[in-house]
Simulated scan of single mutants.
Amino acid sequence: MSARSKRNQPVGDMFPGMPDLLGKQPPKAVEGEHVARTLDEAIARSSEILDDALSVYPVVGTYWLSSGGNDSAIVGHLLRDRYDAVLHVNTGTGIPETTQYVRDLAAAWGDTLHELHPKNSYRDLVLGKVIASTGPNAGKRAVWKGFPGPAGHKVMYRHLKDEPLMRFRKSVVGDQGRTRKIAYLGGMRWGETERRFRNAEAIDQDGAIVWVSPLVHWTDAHMREYRARHRCQQDHEHAQHRLCFDGALPLNEVTEHIHMSGECLCLAYGKPGEPDEIEFFYPHAAAPMRELEREAEAAGIKACRWGQKPPSEDNDAAPAGRLCSSCVAIPGQDDLIDQWRNSGLITPEQHAAFTREAS
């Protein structure tokens, strides 16, 4: 068992209705937060977290951030009557089926959907066409060139995800960020990765944005029990996204194939073989990246391979962005690959092979 699993996760699965808690108190948990809870108690605490956020920070809008992932779906399902609209950041690099899933779900639930797009495209970032607008290199140098590895993750996150969210925030509050705020509901949990364990907070106010993580205290066992309780498990031909009955928990079919939402394929923290896996299931999503590889190579860019760490690049130890749940570092990809092994997605032998290949 990995150090992360020993530190954070309980041992084994829990029976439905049993209380569960993380193996160690998260550094940013509020006093009294680290206690064993049944699923129903965890649900009640999620509502309290949102209540607390809205009482401390009166906001002009509450928005569910839907990535298309299964954890994100639980946030929306649990709090369907408590947000004003859905936000989906279409990075331009993702699998189209994931964006369509978000659109379908918003339509099925009668939600208003704001589909956000970055100002600067991934293609322009890779080809070095995005010139710095601030700092000592303003107007002189590209902010990045080549396919990103870990060191380029912050640049990609800032341009592809953070910038659209900040622009949306400004469209709502304008220049009144000191007095008007909005709430973003995300699916961050302490039990996801070591980075999330160290850094996630239930409520995190940053300027005009109040980041709220209603599931921050949920364990993997809570997540499994919630899915088993609300997702259609009948032996029949399922409705689209398993919305087989009113109140059903939806499923993005992309997650069944590649075990992530696929809403961003910058692959700054790509694991060995990940581009090939994506190409196998979704060749139409990989095709633009393969074409971009050829463009980058023709332009003489050294980092011209999608999902591979650029030559001579050191790993970036900075935390992943708020919305990047599966971005973890190579070598080892310890957080993600350990999760796969612990959840049964890969065998211990496959886990050992992944670890050897990455090291």
Rank of each mutant, 00 (worst) to 15 (best):
R7C: 09
P10M: 00
P19V: 02
K28H: 12
K28A: 13
A29P: 04
S46Y: 02
L50R: 00
L54C: 01
L54S: 01
V60C: 11
S72Q: 08
A73H: 12
D81K: 13
D81N: 14
D84E: 03
V86H: 02
V89D: 01
P96I: 10
L105S: 09
A108D: 09
G110P: 04
L113P: 04
L113G: 07
H114S: 06
N120G: 06
I131K: 11
S133N: 14
A138G: 07
A138S: 13
G149P: 00
A151K: 08
M156V: 08
E163Y: 06
F168T: 02
R169N: 15
K170R: 08
R178I: 06
W190R: 09
F197S: 00
I203M: 02
G207N: 01
A208V: 01
W211N: 15
V216F: 01
M223V: 15
A228R: 15
R231C: 14
C244L: 13
F245L: 11
F245R: 15
L249S: 10
L251T: 07
H257S: 09
L267D: 02
A268D: 10
P272A: 01
P272H: 00
P272V: 01
E274C: 03
P275F: 02
E279I: 03
F281M: 08
P288W: 10
A296H: 03
W306Y: 04
L323W: 09
S326R: 04
L336E: 06
Q339M: 11
A353G: 03
T355F: 14
T355W: 12
E357I: 05
A358F: 03
